[in-house]
Design a protein around this nucleic acid. Structure first.
Lengths: 250, 250
DNA sequence: CGAGGGTTTGAAGTGCATCAAATAGTGTGG
DNA sequence: CCACACTATTTGATGCACTTCAAACCCTCG
């Protein structure tokens, strides 16, 4: 699928090297390897609504988000969307197609204007074959992703609706900061509801419950959290102790 | 933790080579590599109740089940068990410790007398480093496991209790056979309830509903299914079309 | 036989979904 | 710039699925 709303930047952007080095999949790689990736990559801006790829489509690229929001979803038999994930800065997606006959396993759409680093999948495959460290890094990334899904499953069975929303917010918070955190959500709240496995009505009610219990404030896409510990106290009590809910990018 | 109820068999069992070749993690490896694994492995029988390892313990071995049942679980802050998975013939577990500082991420206990192939984790690490195919096989295994967790999460949000039980049974059925399948469950039903995120009471009631709807028969640990299609018709209607629920061993 | 665990059954409560309607917010064309 | 249409969000009322609590039942094993 050809990007229609894109604004390409084939020239190498300054700062891409350090950007990649902060992505865990690339952090252990040599400077040469990183240069090799950057040589074949593009930085592209996309408008809200743009479809990056469709489920079952042949996979050519994988993506890293510089800013903006992307949703991954399945279309169910009855035509409904099941949101698999909502991703933002630092998240990688599309690379798992490698293990699925180079076919994307879900549809990816821009939900807030975004700038993405676009990298050919062929290059990643090549590197995995010939570069031991790349294979190890990829394995670690897969492992983190599996843990993320295990957390998702645990949350679905033990957290109630307000707790799941709180936990979603917590995972977006920068580590280490405990007070006065400001977050920016994708504007469409139904997205988040779907990601968390609840209906819009439930989301609305649950958000009110959460606001009353934890002193957070929400204006449109902006969230203000004055005390992180209040949130963790409310959301994380029932979770298994060995799954600290750090954000997983890979 | 030293096995106390074990019955070792350090001599190489005949049939181990073909057993390993049927495990997807090993199926793509050369005969020499497989021999290397078998040389350092042991086949050990364990009694019901035996603890294989504890959460946070240093990981020395990973395991492949020849027969029997093993449960993996977390202990939550309030002392309850959260069952992560219940595994049987052909399943592998313990190997993910590689990505967690060689520390087991959950506790593993025998729930029905079992015979396991016990393989040193150090050997697997070594092979991943030096053997490209091993790294690729490991990546595929991780990818399958991630998909399994995605399925689990999807099931938790869209299937009701009877459907989840049916789906659990379906994943144990041999592929290709459509009629008169007999399965053996672990004897303790509460285990399965916990694995599926429901209470024992709910499990009991849901099982009755399932029996009425799909003609399956249950006597103790034995399950008789006369028509698989009846089960899939009842359980799989709502699931997303792109997640066929094949059993995932890795 | 009787104790103890696992399983089932009953009754009542909780949380989320559903349906329906009101409200707020957004974008469009006049 | 305003009026209108359309969509997102909220609120209320009701129903269903699962949980919870309690008690009965069943089975095994000493």
């Amino acid at each position: 699928m050809l990007p229609q709303t894109q604004q390409k930047n084939t020239a190498r952007e300054s700062g891409n090297t350090s950007f990649l080095k902060n992505i865990s999949l690339f952090s252990k790689l040599s400077d040469e390897t990183i240069e090799e990736f950057l040589k074949s990559s593009q930085t592209i801006e996309y408008k809200k609504g743009h479809m990056l790829y469709l489920e079952e489509e042949k996979a050519e690229y994988f993506y890293i988000i510089k800013y903006g929001w992307v949703k991954l979803f399945h279309t169910t038999l009855d035509g409904l969307e099941a949101v698999v994930d909502i991703l933002t800065t630092g998240h990688i997606f599309g690379k798992d197609a490698i293990f699925e006959d180079d076919t994307y396993q879900c549809t990816a759409q821009i939900v807030e204007d975004a700038k993405l680093l676009v990298i050919p999948i062929s290059l990643l495959k090549e590197q995995i074959q010939k570069n031991g460290q790349m294979a190890i890094s990829m394995l670690s990334a897969m492992s983190r992703k599996t843990k993320k899904r295990e957390m998702d499953a645990e949350h679905l069975s033990i957290q109630n609706a307000p707790q799941r929303i709180g936990c979603f917010l917590l995972r977006l918070c920068p580590l280490g900061k405990e007070h006065d955190v400001t977050l920016h959500l994708p504007y469409d709240k139904v997205l988040i509801a779907s990601r968390l496995g609840m209906k819009p009505e439930t989301f609305s009610r649950a958000l009110n419950t959460l606001k009353e219990s934890t002193n957070i404030k929400i204006n449109g896409a902006r969230v203000d959290i004055d005390n992180i510990n209040k949130l963790t106290g409310y959301c994380c009590g029932a979770c298994s102790s060995h799954y600290p809910c750090e954000d997983v990018k890979a």
